[in-house]
Design a protein around this nucleic acid. Sequence first.
DNA 1: TTGCGTTCGGGACAAATGTCCTTTCTCTTT
DNA 2: AAAGAGAAAGGACATTTGTCCCGAACGCAA
Lengths: 188, 188
Amino acid sequence: MLRTNESFLQYIEQLYHSQPRKEDIIERSFTKGKKLLVQNEKPSKVMLIKSGITKCFFTEENDKAFIVEFLGKGEILGEIELIRNIPCLCNIEAITDVEVYAIAIPYFSELVRSSLELNNLLLSVFAERIVNTSSRASYQQLYTIENSLSKLLELQSKQEIELSKEDIAAYLGITVRSLNRVMKEKHI
Amino acid sequence: MLRTNESFLQYIEQLYHSQPRKEDIIERSFTKGKKLLVQNEKPSKVMLIKSGITKCFFTEENDKAFIVEFLGKGEILGEIELIRNIPCLCNIEAITDVEVYAIAIPYFSELVRSSLELNNLLLSVFAERIVNTSSRASYQQLYTIENSLSKLLELQSKQEIELSKEDIAAYLGITVRSLNRVMKEKHI
DNA sequence: TTGCGTTCGGGACAAATGTCCTTTCTCTTT
DNA sequence: AAAGAGAAAGGACATTTGTCCCGAACGCAA
């Protein structure tokens, strides 16, 4: 649910401190509620989260939202779009105040081509996201809201993340009305 | 829906023909209906499809099935499990007769650590799968079966793949009864 | 040709979820 | 303190989907 990545953060911080040209990686801040990346727009930077939490979500044409993941410290953003050379797949929005390392695209491209360390970090991240996204897609399609909610609440208590009801509903792909109904039936 | 990857196939075929030790990559065949990989079991090889089509699916504890993707020529199998060192996430089953290149795990691991070309091929594949899986998860959660079926039929006609009703239902994460109902209403 | 078993499609009803609207609660402004 | 606006929860009804079971069609063997 909430993903973090300490080794990726260390790797980028080491690059940040040792870079000769100081513009390849800069620090940026976003306040809660701000969009870091906008769906269907070309990303200008690849970013890695230094602190804070973001949600990564689709807005569909019927105006409904689906949260794919919550991304925290050490998680990378915008890298899929760079590798596939496409506009942003999803929106990324800060749900707390967030600080990131913003990495220039030509610099990041060059690293992907040449750094095995970066490649291996990215492969691990991608593998993790495929596992998480596909297994949750399967589960939420084949079980009722009650089962999915139980799983989410269990994860949530382990990770100590505070989510609004609207965000919980968007993560499960349902309406807030349905979420309230199921929570009431389960006496939550 | 059906994924293929010509450049990955060329890369593996070049390795296959030039390998000194002939056991690192071997060819294997599977008849229609056979399982190439079994969910929750440790994979013994990483495989790349030379010809044929497979389905990659979850079997949930409530005995329902969800097809994540159909994988064809040039697509790689079992690599996620190797990178994350986990048992198989899904089942992989041949829906036509299938031939694969089976790659020894220590050999493949060594290539991942050392070959930038392989890393870049894998990054592209993973990026594609994340895009596909997450966007379809969102769509199928937020729209009705009718919309999802329309999308599938459109893809299917472009790709000339023949699917059983049971497989279509499993790809959409619904029952065959529901699929029949919607197909009848749409006069298909 | 007939009988049996399996597969497929659909009827009927139940369950799950969405939509729309109302009521209550909370917060802010006057 | 009161009023107004916005947010949150839930009632009622509609729609969508799942479950169960039955009948028809098909294939195979005797």
